[in-house]
Design a protein around this nucleic acid. Structure first.
Length: 241
DNA sequence: GCGACAG
DNA sequence: ATCTTGTCGC
């Protein structure tokens, strides 16, 4: 586990954060097919918070894309770098997630984020942002439709319907379990929507959510418990003479 | 102005 | 995200 400082140039205000998104958005790559599902490695990232104690823990878990076996994992903890503001989630999660990815002993391959990529008010969600900063192919798989609309896909696993911002398709509502609420898939960086959906289906042999996010979720919660729970190190109290 | 709103 | 036990159902 590694400890992360908040970058000195990290945005402080919502206006600054939106300006960063508007600036970085031009660097998103949307014309690459991305890695084929079922090959190489796929990495899930997730974050857990203790707002009262100002602690955030992130986890990155690398799976073999063919077997879904865990082949590597890493965690990082830090201070909360931004409040939760819809549309600015990335500023709350990214510093710690980057540290967890950096701590991995091997390349992550495709990164699966808990949230959105293109499906974002300014078309630059967490998955897009993480992709631009790392250069890695990324996708977003979210549990809620945010502000977007969709028609219910057919009941069978694999069915999908466009996720719409007005008339623009920004992602897909994808059924990963028959008869269960869909997940909401969008492109992050260096991959396409069909590939993102195929990866999502390959990662959901048993549950609604991808194995990547399930493993990362469990690991970052454990890292948070260990960081704030009994036996955790306390920083030396600052004082003046 | 008010409400909704990824995690 | 997080607060939180049992419970209904396959």
């Amino acid at each position: 586990m590694t400890t992360v400082p908040i970058p000195a140039d990290w945005p402080t205000t919502e206006d600054e954060a939106r300006a960063v998104q508007d600036e970085l958005r031009a660097r998103v790559v949307l014309d690459e097919p991305g890695p084929p599902p079922g090959t190489g490695h796929v990495t899930g990232v997730d974050v857990a918070y203790d707002d009262a104690r100002d602690v955030v823990a992130a986890a990155a878990v690398v799976l073999d894309a063919a077997t879904l076996d865990v082949v590597a994992e890493a965690t990082a903890v830090g201070r909360i770098s931004f409040p939760y503001v819809p549309g600015l989630l990335a500023f709350r999660e990214i510093p710690t997630v980057l540290a967890a990815l950096d701590a991995l002993p091997r390349p992550p391959g495709l990164v699966v984020c808990d949230g959105y990529g293109l499906a974002h008010p300014r078309r630059f969600g967490l998955a897009s942002h993480l992709g631009v900063l790392t250069g890695l192919p990324t996708i977003g798989v979210a549990k809620n439709p945010f502000t977007f609309t969709y028609d219910a896909p057919a009941a069978e696993r694999g069915a999908s319907a466009p996720l719409l911002a007005d008339t623009e398709e920004v992602g897909r509502a994808l059924r990963t379990r028959t008869g269960v609420k869909p997940v909401f898939v969008s492109v992050g960086h260096r991959t396409t929507l069909p590939t993102a959906c195929a990866h999502t289906l390959a990662l959901t042999p048993a549950y609604r959510l991808p194995e990547t996010t399930r493993r990362a979720d469990a690991l970052c919660r454990r890292a948070l418990r260990e960081a704030v729970g009994p036996g955790a190190e306390h920083p030396a109290p600052p004082h003046q003479d």
